[in-house]
């Protein structure tokens, strides 16, 4: 199924965005997020961007204060997911202009809209930034 969840977590370990493509209860989510964040935040820059946890493989990348963590299954191409994370950040950057953690916090729904255009049910739908952003810009204009 590819991508199982996407998390954005800041350096303090606070979740800033969470999107799951499989059902977990709230308690399971909290536990999972806690474990993953502890594991990933403890790693240094030279270590590789992949961490195995439970039956997930976590592909993560750090952008300034924010960690982007993507949980995938064993069949997924890790390097491609790394590229996907970068695409996601670039897309958000194009929309918000110099995107920062606060943008994502205060425009959580927009961040979700973008994600929704990019990933559906754990599969990548669209990789063109302008295609991703078109419906969102349309909505901005309308309101």
């Amino acid at each position: 199924m590819g991508i199982r969840f996407i998390l954005m977590v800041n350096k303090q370990g606070q979740t800033r965005l969470a999107q799951y493509f499989e059902y977990l209860t709230i308690d399971q989510r909290r536990a999972l997020e806690g474990e993953i964040v502890r594991k990933c935040l403890a790693r240094n820059e030279q270590q590789c961007s992949f961490v195995e946890h439970r039956n997930y493989k976590i592909v993560y990348r750090r952008y300034a204060s924010l960690f982007f963590l993507v949980g995938v299954d064993n069949e997924e191409n890790e390097l491609a997911i790394l590229e996907f994370i970068h695409l996601l950040v670039e897309t958000m950057d194009r929309h918000f202009g110099n995107v920062c953690e606060l943008d994502i916090m205060f425009h959580l729904e927009k961040a979700h809209f973008m994600l929704e255009e990019m990933v559906m049910n754990g599969c990548i739908v669209e990789t063109s930034k302008s295609n991703i952003l078109a419906p969102i810009q349309l909505m901005d204009k309308a309101s």
């Binding site: 800041n10 350096k11 820059e45 952008y63 300034a64 924010l66 950040v89 670039e90 916090m105």
Partner: peptide
């Protein structure tokens, strides 16, 4: 705090080889 930091500062448009 640092949540004002722009995420892509210092990034080129490509993922840099570390």
């Amino acid at each position: 705090g640092p949540d004002h930091e722009s995420l892509l500062v210092g990034h080129s448009s490509q993922i840099m080889e570390r």
